[in-house]
């Protein structure tokens, strides 16, 4: 132990103005490092990814088989239930993954790892949020690719490049919004038990009260209203439309909500609004808790 550890004791004599003020470069540096950590974890514990890909494929196969014998025509323009279900599974899988995004952060809080980040001079503590969102977004894209591939194999067809691009945009928009909400909860709730409870009571009800499994026309009118207010429907219906209509445009009507027809463009705009609102909502919460 002969090397020198500390620089100059003069470190303390610097005035406030002399200390470097972190900017964009520092924000990127910390965000990249925090994201890298999540990917190293995934690489060493690939079970999450494997299960995350297998689960939606099983949904697609088993749920698709369950309603296989439903007379054609019942599910709108879809030729069969499997084709109808694909878009629902894509969105629900992305949603469920994003909803769980807060759990690792909650465990970091509980194990004290988060303190390590909180005593550091982070350029912005939003780097913690962005890192999680980037990680979840990547996971979702891998899952989506698997579902799209299996759907195509099962005969649901494949949208064109523009359609696939818009699908990606829709999935990512939903993922960012829901990830933000989940992280907000991870900072606001007392512990992982409470967070898990919220995840459990949100997850399946939002699935059933959306157009993932059946079209609006199938539902009693009160549920139609609920499903038409559910952000998931605004991600599912555009994707479903893109799947069935190669001639889609932003003006195409994708959903006949009880309060009026929703065009593809409007659905996507509302989804973007939802995600932006989610980010705006958690901003003060995260600043207060950790800012």
């Amino acid at each position: 132990m002969s090397q020198s550890v500390t620089p100059a004791a003069s470190g303390l004599n610097t005035s406030v103005a002399d200390l470097p003020s972190p900017g964009t470069k520092e924000f990127i540096q910390e965000t990249v490092a925090l994201t890298r950590r999540l990917f190293i974890q995934l690489q060493r514990r690939p079970t999450t990814l494997v299960a995350g890909v297998i689960q939606p494929l099983m949904w697609l196969i088993l749920f698709g088989a369950l309603f296989q014998n439903v007379p054609s025509g019942l599910f709108g323009d879809s030729q069969n239930y499997g084709q109808f279900l694909g878009s629902g599974i894509i969105v629900f899988t992305a949603f469920a993954g994003a909803l769980n995004a807060g759990l690792p952060v909650m465990f970091d809080r509980e194990f004290g790892f988060l303190n390590r980040l909180l005593v550091a001079p982070l350029a912005s503590r939003f780097s913690i949020v962005i890192a999680s969102a980037l990680f979840i977004a990547t996971m979702s894209l891998v899952q989506t690719t698997a579902i799209v591939a299996l759907s195509a194999f099962l005969g649901a067809g494949l949208p064109g490049p523009a359609g696939l691009l818009l699908m990606t945009f829709i999935v990512l928009t939903l993922v960012f919004g829901v990830t933000a909400l989940s992280l907000g909860l991870a900072f606001a709730l007392p512990g992982h038990i409470e967070l898990l409870a919220v995840i459990f009571i949100t997850n399946l009800p939002l699935l059933f009260a959306s157009t993932a499994l059946v079209p609006l026309s199938f539902m009693p009118s009160w549920l139609q209203v609920v499903a038409s207010l559910n952000p998931l429907s605004y991600a599912i219906e555009p994707i479903r439309y893109i799947y069935l209509h190669s001639d889609w445009s932003f003006g195409s009507t994708v959903m006949a909500a009880p309060f009026g027809d929703i065009s593809l463009g409007l659905a996507v705009a509302l989804l973007v609004t939802f995600s932006a609102a989610a980010l705006a909502t958690i901003r003060p919460l995260i600043s207060r808790r950790i800012g």
Partner: peptide
């Protein structure tokens, strides 16, 4: 890797 993470959150020059 822990050290590298620590270096990044304290913005050490690469």
């Amino acid at each position: 890797e822990m050290m590298e993470l620590q270096a990044a959150i304290y913005h050490l020059p690469k």
